[in-house]
Design a binder for these strands. Sequence first.
DNA 1: ATGAAAGCGCTAACAG
DNA 2: CTGTTAGCGCTTTCAT
Lengths: 368, 368
Amino acid sequence: MKQLSIDDIPEKKRPRPVTAHEVARFAGVSQSAVSRVFTPGASVSDRTRAKVVAAATALGYRPNLIASSLITGKSRIVGVVVPGLNNPFYAALVDALSAALSLRDYRVMLFTARHGTSADPILEEILRYRLDALVLVSAQLSSRLADECAEVGLPVVMVNRKTDSESVSSVTGDNRAGAACIGAFLLAGSHHSFAFMAGLDSSSTSRDREAGFCERLYQAGVAPPLKVHGSYTVEAAARATRALLKADTRPDAIFCANDQMAMAAIDVARSEFGVDVGRALSIVGFDDTQLAASPAYRLTTFSQPLDEMVDSALAILIDARSGRDSSAGPRIVSGHLVVRDSARLPPNGLKQVGGRTVWMPPAKQSIN
Amino acid sequence: MKQLSIDDIPEKKRPRPVTAHEVARFAGVSQSAVSRVFTPGASVSDRTRAKVVAAATALGYRPNLIASSLITGKSRIVGVVVPGLNNPFYAALVDALSAALSLRDYRVMLFTARHGTSADPILEEILRYRLDALVLVSAQLSSRLADECAEVGLPVVMVNRKTDSESVSSVTGDNRAGAACIGAFLLAGSHHSFAFMAGLDSSSTSRDREAGFCERLYQAGVAPPLKVHGSYTVEAAARATRALLKADTRPDAIFCANDQMAMAAIDVARSEFGVDVGRALSIVGFDDTQLAASPAYRLTTFSQPLDEMVDSALAILIDARSGRDSSAGPRIVSGHLVVRDSARLPPNGLKQVGGRTVWMPPAKQSIN
DNA sequence: ATGAAAGCGCTAACAG
DNA sequence: CTGTTAGCGCTTTCAT
């Protein structure tokens, strides 16, 4: 099919919408009076207000937000950059973000920066719209552009990803501790041979999870995990799982850097290798997406507090707007390991919390 | 936690971004020259262009799109209204839409209108931004507001939902034919007792699927299906499934109005009732979301051509912009039934197409 | 090809 | 409280 462009077509002139001026004339008042009626907290007499409102409804007037943002300098639009909506965790994050923002009377403008690509080109676009703030969900940003955002006073917060740059705020789950907890959990379940399925090495999240996991295994004096690459896609994750299960010495525990890859791993382990996941092979994920709880997977996974992440992100944006840059830097929200059936259980440490089973590493544990 | 509002905080004045005027002075040209350099297809001499570009990069100039849309009347922003990103089919639709639009240099502004609520209040918001077009994904719109959109020349297209109003365009899958096909498939698989799990009765999609299904059963002289309500949520779908399976006469085939509900049904059938789905009980969905293919579900479902829907929607928008209102009205794209393991197989009619098994009703079939 | 000038629709002083 | 007056940053005639 030939690539159509919207711009190839001569366009019909759109009927011009009603302006404040027209309403003013119709109501027999000044144009500023109209403006004031639609500006919360401006002083207008009841009589004027009534006349204006009548005229406005009669004509079907709606204030032009574009025009007002031009003069006020704020658009009430927040940019949200996301790798895609394919991963349910991202979708849920965007959904929550959008809901929270719309509650505060902000609109979200959605941008996609696929995994592995930088958000930089998109940022060039973004900076042309005068957005009020920017949320990067699992996206990378060069420090050059981060600086540039700071320069034009565009508050930026990264969610589920962090950066070295001091100047960019971020909110992430406790990837390191979470991964260490998973390591401890698997160790306690007396597994012997470990594997780690990475997302992308360019992702701080994947790196942190790897580091926390390896560190904990190292502390236990166990051989470092085999590392395979799931690339944050189900296809690559499936391939990686095949490689792992075809190997001479099959691992008995796989920690996958996110739920999506973990579920892909479960799928191939079960259906292609007939492996009894949860007994012969333990698979653990990260995120606790909705599907992880489904009977079809019953995935043991580290739960990230989605709402808390969203709240924190917005709080950071608020601080940034008020000039308290003090808040810049990483914000870490903690989660917990929810235990289901995809991994062998340790003898103790299991706890029922709010209808779910969670596991916490014993307070002090000698390493022998 | 106390409800924070972004607006509670006194705000730091943002450093004003560089304007075309400043670039002009710096480059020693007029401001209009600067504008022309950044306007595709304007005539500027190479010398001037060079000077302007140099100045612009030196100062870090970025044209203010807000300002330019004020004057041109087009924002290059398309509104997308969606019930939420929780349903993977919606998420995929938004993702594809966003990708297609960004290719054409449009931005998407995301709005959420939860299921069961009308998009009307949101539309009031939308009309204040001067969006170039509006895509309603699985959302309802009152004909009053539809008319209002037409009046201000805002092209609107509904995706995966339709309306009676002649003036609103829509693109949907062939819900009726698809559902009829599922009915025929189930009949051919010699099922006896049928159930239909509806989404919301306010949804044209659910109604059409119900109608097509019932119609086909009626043609076969079979009793009409039991109807239960899944309300497009996994919780309600789970409840509905329980009701169905606890009933005295259990159906042996359930057609669910979408995949999400079908998977919820499979979950409870298997895990709570120990039912062998695909043998003792057949469950069929609609949409063919990514997860339907997963070994954990292997859901038989009617596949909707996502990309084609998106392409059609954009094509309709293009037509609308060019004033060819002739194209208004429903556009229906056809799909096909992909057969996996969640429903008993009919003796014939199965076909391999591109690595997947599909089923098509025999051309002419006598009804006895 | 280029500059000057006139707005796009609105808000924000500023007088009255 | 209200009208008048400037612009916000840009595009677009219109002359030159």
